[in-house]
Design a protein around this nucleic acid. Structure first.
Lengths: 124, 124
DNA sequence: TGTATATATGAGCAATTGCTCATATATAGT
DNA sequence: ACTATATATGAGCAATTGCTCATATATACA
């Protein structure tokens, strides 16, 4: 058991509630800015109702832009923009057949996270 | 095996790529607007670097506002605002002791989703 | 080659977000 | 009661978001 020097920290204010533990955490930062940004980026991609529906449908079957547009009752442009966004994050991938482009999920991890969360949220 | 009437759908445009399946999906909507909004709401809460860090630290131990402020290198007001946001979603809860308020995670499901996702994202 | 269909993309715009600043509230100590 | 500390909150503002509209690109077919 080591004793921790509370006096080691000297700054402008007075709160010492659990300063000790905070310092311990600070000394092992454990999560970097880049990691936090990366994690947030993925969650943010799933954090929009339109994209939730898209991923929900794509998780069931490959769909073309037009059909997604119909299913979501949204303009083709809006759908294409969202698909572009998801594709940039490698959440979704394209398969072109003639004029039409089919989209499907591209990432097993994200798919699992999505499905698990769906399950969790049933019980809330 | 049932045959599906493609001709049943008659609307303004021409794409019939997989219209049949789309209609099948449409006939069982399976995901409502409210559900999509609810799911997105949760993901959105996790979709910001500041909140990711907060949840990451709080998942390790209960912390007061001041210490979170120190850990995140952010102003107390910004931290309080974010905590308020997370509290409204029942992701975080308060425990008041004298002048200081301790925050901790309030939802096992969200905690699990967060940890699992953290694990998944290690392998990406 | 010309036309129609399917998708992609840039610009613009209203709504939302995440912060800061100032200030309010709550509690403890004198 | 007065002061200091800890947290909460409203207003404001710059940045981001998610759509629409117009238009570009790609492919199929006559």
């Amino acid at each position: 058991m080591e004793k921790i020097e509370i006096e080691a920290i000297e700054d402008e204010d007075t709160c010492t509630c659990i300063r000790v533990d905070s310092v311990q955490l600070i000394q092992e930062p454990q999560i970097t800015e880049e990691q936090a940004v990366g994690i947030a980026e993925v969650f943010k991609a799933l954090g929009d109702p339109t994209r939730v529906k898209m991923i929900y449908y794509l998780q069931q079957k490959e769909l073309c832009v037009h059909d997604l547009s119909t299913l979501l009752a949204m303009g083709q442009s809006a759908v294409s923009h969202q698909l572009r966004y998801l594709r940039d994050l490698h959440i979704v991938k394209r398969r072109k057949v003639g004029k039409t482009v089919f989209y499907s999920l591209d990432d097993d991890h994200i798919e699992q996270i999505f499905i698990q969360t769906l399950g969790h949220l049933q019980h809330m």
